[in-house]
């Protein structure tokens, strides 16, 4: 079964917010990750049961994704991020340009979040790796935020990561 067949019906997710910017601009300052995640989290959380805590959780997850695109993205093209909602779940769809060959890397990292040994790999990475790899960050989202992660088929030289976060259930 390929990724496209596994997709849930898109229409059930309502769009909440989306932004796009030149990748070059995004990459010009590391703090953009923190600023954008804080801002987007605040905007989309205001009507959740506990807006402040929802925003804190969401910002954590989104920041990690933005950091992944900051570290792995290439400067030509645009980065786009859209947030959707369906009941207690938020979906983040993040697209950004990346060097050739990186898509393959992301596919493997995403596939590992679905494997049975995901937690063992995560613990192993915390206890042995010097710095977190992109794979560990995706594992972190899957394990600490109960995220389910997939990749969407995309133009060459860019990736689109789709992350579903059931935060309302965790927060309240």
């Amino acid at each position: 079964m390929n990724a496209a067949q596994r997709q849930p019906v898109e229409t059930k997710f309502e769009p909440l917010l989306q932004f796009e910017m030149e990748m070059g601009t995004f990459l010009s300052d590391w703090h953009h990750c923190d600023q954008l995640s804080t801002y987007v989290a605040r905007m989309i959380s205001h009507n959740r049961t506990d807006p402040v805590r929802h925003s804190n959780f969401f910002s954590s997850a989104l920041n990690e994704l933005l950091e992944v695109s900051f570290r792995g993205g290439s400067p030509e093209g645009r980065i786009g991020c859209a947030v959707y909602r369906q009941g207690p779940n938020e979906r983040v769809k993040l697209s950004f340009p990346c060097p050739p060959g990186h898509r393959q890397f992301f596919q493997e990292a995403v596939a590992r979040t679905h494997r049975n040994d995901a937690y063992a790999r995560y613990l192993d990475a915390i206890s042995t790796d010097l710095a977190p790899s992109r794979e560990v960050i995706l594992l972190d989202l899957a394990i600490n935020f109960d995220a389910s992660i997939r990749l969407e088929e995309d133009k060459p030289r860019s990736v689109t990561i789709v992350v579903d976060l059931p935060l309302e259930g965790i927060v309240s």
């Binding site: 920041n63 950091e67 915390i126 560990v136």
Partner: peptide, 16 residues
């Protein structure tokens, strides 16, 4: 309030 994976790993390393 917030700590990214980079910081979490760095502090965890020291404790471990």
């Amino acid at each position: 309030a917030q700590m990214n994976n980079t910081a979490f790993h760095a502090f965890s390393r020291v404790v471990l």
